[in-house]
Amino acid sequence: MMIYAVISLAVLGAVFGIILGVAEKKFAVEVDPRVEAITEVLPGANCGGCGFPGCNGYAEAIVAGTAPIDICAPGKEEVRQKIAAIMGVDAGDTKQRKVVQLFCNGGKDRAALNYVYEGLQDCHVAATMFKGPKTCSFGCIGFGSCVQTCPFNAIEMGPDQLPVIDYDLCTGCGACVNNCPQHVLKLVEATKLVHVRCSNKEKGKTAKEACTVACIKCKICEKNCPEKAISVVADANGSIAVIDYEKCTNCGICVAKCPTKVIEKILPLNATCAQNKDITMGQNPTGCQQCGLCH
């Protein structure tokens, strides 16, 4: 009797073992080795800036042919070249590097307050109450939701309670841009140095009352720009000076002419900078643009 038990179980086990072994071979799923290779090359931050679910999702999309190879912002030029090599395609022209810019300069003591906010220190929560405690309903709320969002720790809050972006670490993935409830963060090419640091579209007087560094729509910049790159653009919410970065040459005339000093030239922190040779380390609080022109 006992021999039956041993034999039958052994046979049963052997049969299942063989079936599983054969199935392993027969139903083996071929994973394209390129997917793994590309995932290896990608930064692995899973920031979602490319629009795919994580780096692995992007790698699968590239191999499937449904995604271009140049949309990984954190990976920059280096990763693009590597992916091109893996996929065996031409890498094409160098894509202009983008970094995030804050379109608001209304920090502590500059922007007037409507009320004292004592709630949760989160921009999204504060934004539900009259667009934050500041009188200006367009500007940065200043609780640092972007700091928490950034997958690369490139943003921290400055002394004036505005985010300060480290352009060495910023990869231009756009995670903070999508998360900002006020939409005051935008991606701009790193070689562009002149920015209108205000988002207030209200009339000049109202804007000036809300913040000492507000755009008052005087159009002086528009009149003085030799390239016709800056103009006061009106839309449904009002109007504000907007720079056409395609045309802007970083000449800085508008910076000098702006009566409220809204337009700023944010200079690289490099001592041997081609843009402005007399700049010294630490002179500019907003930091180097990594424009690459100094190299």
Partner: peptide
Amino acid sequence: LGIGYLQTIAFILVIAALVQFVEMVMKK
């Protein structure tokens, strides 16, 4: 074979092997 007392161990064997097998087939 008259070895009904092996029911539990034999069934566990079947279930474990089956789940593995189904997983492979479904993956493919």
